[in-house]
Design a protein around this nucleic acid. Sequence first.
RNA 1: GGUCCCAUCGUCUAGCGGUUUAGGAUACUGGCCUCUCACGCCGGAGACACGGGUUCGAUUCCCGUUGGGACUACCA
Length: 469
Amino acid sequence: MTTDHIVTRFPPSPTGYLHIGGARTALFNWLFARQRGGKFILRIEDTDKERSSDQATRAILESMEWLGLDWDEGPYFQSERYDIYTSYIERLIEAGQAYHCHCSPEELDIRRAEAKAKGLKPKYDGKCRELGLGPAPGSVVRLKTPQWGETQFNDMVKGAITFNNDELDDLILKRSDGSPTYHMAVVADDISLGVNYIIRGDDHVNNTPRQILIYKALGEPIPQYAHVPMILGPDKTRLSKRHGATSVLAYRDMGYLPHALINSLARLGWSHGDQEKFSREELIQKFSLENVGKSAGVFNAEKLLDLNAYYIREAADENLAVLLPPFLKGLGIEAPEEKKLKGAASTLKARSKTLVEMAESALFYFQDQVKYEENGDKKFLKPDVLDLLNDLNGSLKKMSDFNHAELEKLFITFLDEKKIKLGKVAQPLRVALTGKTVSPGIFEVMDVLGKEEVSARISRAIDHIKAKA
RNA sequence: GGUCCCAUCGUCUAGCGGUUUAGGAUACUGGCCUCUCACGCCGGAGACACGGGUUCGAUUCCCGUUGGGACUACCA
């Protein structure tokens, strides 16, 4: 499998957190490489010193790790690879494919404005193209792009795309401060790292012919391209902070499971018939660029929430018990008991859409003194249930095996003796035990709480009712 | 403005000329289950942007219109 040499990469620029659009691009590259036994490289594009930060880099790596998108090589940092770019630029100049240009940005602005006024394209006019100039302070290096003909490539998701070369101008390869521009750095990196499949957002479609021209000038083989459609916000514009949570880490903090996000991202733009749920292994096995759609899509947060709820209720209690403490801590529960954590997970997993929600619902298990919800208190903790609770508590205290099955048996006899229905005791009991009118099944709750605590909570409710009267 | 890309229920999508009364998911909604709330199960409403072709036959192919998006920097 390792013989087919597929190399993909994900090259975020560390100008902010990893957002879900970037995460999906990373996922597609990762899936493609994993499926074909190839290599997945992580590269940090930090050539813009002004906007890059270490903090952003750390957030990106943390996001990738949380999602489980492991990389085989890197992270490479472009800022540490300037020698490589310089050597490629030298190669281009020596081959006569690039030239030094002495035009200043100010001159360029003026000439561009003039061209525009005349209704011409505002591209570089080629003034220094044939002058044979050498390097000078403030000069840049430009690619000598063909002035006629066309550049075509066969995109793996969009099909054949053609550009007229006269639409492209002599783009700058090396800035006046000696640093490489984006196009130069990307191409040099992808060549030197052996990247042969470039899967990226379709905002790069227009950049592709420029980069292909650099490959051609260098005489290097052109990689395969796959441009995946963008992810849009609910208002159908490019996803941004305005649209609320877009950061991968934000979803982690909101109590989402990494796999729910992965599954959701995979299904945004890609499909496999009618299937909605995929395990990680299934994604690797079934992913294909051919089934990536061509049109941009709106990120559906509701569907992600539903998937998250699904994966939570499918998860093993032990796993959830491990994930829960950080969220409980945020609610003031410092050292939750292991047994209760599992109990909470088991009884709450069908009722929680996120781990945050689960932690909130689980609070009553860990509080000694549950706070009675106002409505429940008023409606169910009334003097007329005093005898019922008292008698019940008496019977419960006599139990030797305090578990779900035994409790159910005891209640059948108890209800029979009292000639009442379960509904009559369940709600008052629920409020007594959990403080709320909504909770997991009453037998499950008692099972998790254990005999001592159940009894103590009932006694406390009885005292509370008496105190009210 | 120019260039490039895109267009099926609100949203994500299946569909790759006839098998379609256009399927699934989500959200919404009616019911069942039931100790509350969920879960689960059954049902409902909801889409091929428009106009021309091509064809015996277009959601599917071609062209145009409209709409949306991207790019157009010594940002990435």
